[in-house]
Amino acid sequence: MIEVSQLVKKYGDFTALHGISFSAKKGEIIGLLGPNGAGKTTTMKILSAFMPSTSGTTKVAGFDVFDDPMEVKKRVGYLPETPPLYTDFRVKEYLEFVAGIKHLAGSRLKERYEFVIEHCGLRDRQQSVINNLSKGFKQRVGIAQAIIHDPEVVILDEPTVGLDPVQIVEIRNLIKNLGSNHTVILSTHILPEVTMTCNHVVMINRGKVLADGSVESLTQGKGESLEEAYLRIITQDAHVVETANKGDS
């Protein structure tokens, strides 16, 4: 469903991604982990065909994001870190507009609209102006727009930020449900969440993949929690860089 190979992204002199490779099958929920500035958002922007990579290939649902961006865009739902909301609009108007630009119409639109309203818990907020919604509800509207067209791949950049514990559980269940017939990529800093939802973890730091596998394979089956594994892997990486720098000077 997703194949990323040797992805490099340079912003001027700064290299954000140094050849990232990973892949995901249909029905997998991938947790993209890493410290701030590791390249998670950059990877997601490339996967959603928002921006091109400097080199390397990315295939989503069998289409290359560079050669066939339109086909990729039809099959991807993307929630960026800041939900892309028209704050003057009412929830219903906004979601219907998004459905329109995703080419939904008629009974299909109604059906999908009902689905996201139900599953994102927006039933009572359909007529609210988005600007007046709380952060958590804005986030739900953001998730709703990412899944309204029933995309094969759902990309969520920190989907549970700003939600209260009850909402987090709801959204987590929603993501789990999505995972049954979609491929979901999500990034988060809340590691227990990854243990609970994701069946595949890709850990990146400074634009490199440090670990790629199931949660069990990363925790080495030693009863280590994901948090401990994360700290171990990130510290190891920092140590490697330190010694490499010493070697240079």
Binding site: V76, P83, P84, Y86, V98, Q145
Partner: peptide
């Protein structure tokens, strides 16, 4: 400002 350009540019419109 509203980050909605991302939504438009990741939707199947030119």
């Amino acid at each position: 400002r509203q980050n909605t350009l991302v939504l438009l540019m990741t939707s199947p419109i030119r």
